[in-house]
């Protein structure tokens, strides 16, 4: 808990620290860390019920497309919320249809779902088609730090949701559902509701993260916004950091995303070989993720 708050405080104070020449760069990296950590947390929230989502890239993309399409009409914040809602509704659809699929079957079904959505984004004429969609900068672009603080807001929301779930009865219900749905039912857990709510909340935050991402990159195309690579990133970070927790995905996001940026600066060519090597070593020697390093305090 203290570590979580400490990290959040660091993000909040980052723009005010005397970072000298590196300030703008650190803030840019910090922005992407926030967005991807929020995405990872939102994935973990869903994973806690045993649903392995490979559709988080698509939820992210829906949020981003929502912003790209609606922000010119409605302004930044309403567009952000509606985009996230769009992601949430699509997740409910997926959840309702694929309710009885488990583990890898759910993963493949969600992958298929996300590929279909991407094709739709590619084919719907109002979504800019294959050429892509320009996104207006956050709050009219008047304030360069706006995306950073929007990112911070999304991260705070993701952390708050995750902590709420982790500490309350909902988290127990999630864990019971993950371990055995049949047993959970016997224990009086309303499995369907727990799964759908987790999926809805998880995709909502993923959509928000995508929306903020779009406001920073200013341009979306279906191959980038709905990419499978992002869905995989959303699951790599929590596993690396430590599953089914708040600190794990957060810490994993901070380390993994900054590590990738740093490796790219230092090594340049072939830096991904080292990145992949670190992932493999982490699994071999830290089976519980980074949290294992901290002494495995959680139950």
């Amino acid at each position: 808990m203290r570590a979580v708050l400490g990290l959040l405080l660091l993000f909040a104070l980052l723009p005010f620290l005397p970072l000298g020449d590196w300030r703008a760069f650190v803030l840019d990296v910090g922005f992407f860390v926030q967005v991807l950590a929020a995405l990872a947390l939102s994935w973990d929230l869903v994973a806690r019920t045993g649903q392995l989502s490979l559709a988080h890239g698509a939820f992210f993309g829906l949020g981003a497309y929502g912003v790209g399409l609606l922000a010119p009409e409605l302004g930044t914040l309403p567009a952000l919320l509606l985009g996230a809602l769009l992601a949430g509704l699509s997740a409910l659809l997926l959840g309702a249809v694929a309710l009885r699929l488990h583990g890898l079957y759910f993963a493949i079904a969600s992958l298929a779902f996300s590929e279909v959505l991407r094709t739709l984004a590619l084919k719907l004429p109002f979504a800019g088609g294959p050429i892509g969609l320009p996104v207006p900068p956050a709050l009219g672009g008047a304030w360069p730090l706006a995306p950073y603080f929007l990112g911070l807001g999304v991260l705070l929301l993701a952390v708050a949701l995750s902590l709420w779930a982790e500490r309350g009865a909902f988290g127990l219900a999630q864990a019971a559902t993950r371990q055995s749905e049949a047993v959970a039912r016997v224990l009086g857990v309303r499995v369907v509701r727990v799964k759908l709510l987790s999926l809805f909340l998880g995709s909502l935050t993923a959509g928000l993260a995508g929306g903020v991402y779009g406001m920073k990159t200013l341009f979306l195309n279906p191959y980038d916004a709905f990419s499978l690579a992002r869905a995989v990133e959303a699951l790599v970070i929590p596993i690396f950091g430590g599953l089914y927790s708040t600190l794990g995905p957060l810490l994993g996001g901070v380390l993994l995303v900054s590590l990738e940026q740093a490796l790219r600066l230092w090594i340049q060519e072939g830096y991904l070989v080292v990145y992949g090597g670190i992932l493999v070593l982490a699994i071999l020697f830290l089976p519980k993720g980074l949290l294992g390093l901290l002494g495995g305090r959680r139950g």
């Binding site: 995989v232 699951l235 790599v236 596993i239 070989v273 090597g277 992932l279 982490a282 699994i283």
Partner: peptide, 14 residues
């Protein structure tokens, strides 16, 4: 299972 998946993903990246 998830750890195994990350491992093979890392291998694929390498």
């Amino acid at each position: 299972e998830l750890n195994q998946m990350l491992l093979t993903f890392g291998l694929s990246v390498i």
